[in-house]
Amino acid sequence: MKNTGPAERPATGPVAGGVGATSAPDEQQGTRNRVARSILDHGPSTAAELAERLELTQAAVRRHLDALVADRVVEPRAQRVYGARGRGRPAKVFALTESGRDAFDQAYDELATDAMRWIARAAGGGDPGQAAVAAFARAWVESQVERYRERVEGAAPQERAQVLAEALSEDGYAATARSAPASAGEQLCQHHCPVAHAAEQFPQLCEAETEIFSRLLGTHVQRLATIAHGDGVCTTYVPHAARSPEPPPHEPEQQQHATASESTAGRNPV
């Protein structure tokens, strides 16, 4: 079942979709949606980064950010800085709030959660119910990514994480892959998750995705951060297939992303 997430619904968003609706002209609402979508697709961002991506002035971006903050669609955070820091305070980044994310995918997330609950009840609850949920999660994730298999496995080993990220992005997960800091591996980051609440309640979804990513990429992978667990981005460490290095410190892909907690492994939403 293909994710019909926000990447395929450019006309909707936190403003036009109902959360934080305002009386601003349609053009302003559309621009605010673009600002929110850019944060959704790229993770917590500074006003300067948003201005560059959207080809707007920083002053215009800040006006829209002020409105989105007032509507509780986004929230400001202090940017994390690793290593030596220059003079002055670190730049402020803006991240989607929980209600901001819900505005993009609330119906999809609720459907996934209801389906998992029904499966658990139909199997009798308890351990049988959890086993049934796990079996469903594996089958569902595998059906989601099966169409990637030929594409990913046909790529050179060192290119597979990037190819998988591109395939995930086409399905609305806003994924990226880049070298992990100080490590012989990469970080596969999913900046968006349409079923974060379902994954929070049913970690079997995360475990299934981790297992299938590992099979597709031909190497063991490890979760470092997840949206379902409250982080700004879902991050998976992918060691180079030819080596078996220890995983890097639990640092997300970009400086502004929240550091993963120790209990994050296996909690990345599908």
Rank of each mutant, 00 (worst) to 15 (best):
E200C: 09
E27I: 09
H229I: 01
L168Y: 12
P128N: 03
V19A: 14
A120L: 09
E262L: 11
A84M: 13
A225M: 08
V35R: 02
A135K: 12
S99Y: 06
G13D: 07
S143R: 14
P245Y: 00
L65K: 01
G88Q: 05
R121W: 15
D127V: 10
E159C: 08
C189L: 03
A24E: 10
P6E: 06
G5Y: 13
A107P: 06
T219G: 01
F94Y: 15
W140F: 14
E211T: 10
P10F: 09
L111P: 02
T57R: 09
R267N: 05
D71T: 11
R89T: 15
S244E: 13
R243L: 15
P76H: 12
P181I: 04
A115I: 12
Q255F: 11
C193W: 07
A123E: 09
T176A: 00
D102S: 07
H240P: 10
A161R: 01
A103R: 05
I212F: 12
P14E: 03
T264R: 03
A182L: 11
P247E: 02
V15G: 05
R80S: 09
V35A: 00
D102W: 04
T210H: 07
V74Q: 04
H240I: 13
M1P: 01
L56N: 06
G30I: 13
D102K: 03
Q144M: 07
G125N: 05
E251I: 11
R53M: 05
R85G: 14
H192I: 04
Q256N: 11
A11K: 11
A16Q: 14
G129I: 03
Q204N: 01
A122Q: 15
A182N: 14
P157T: 00
M1T: 01
A155V: 04
Q222P: 08
E110Y: 02
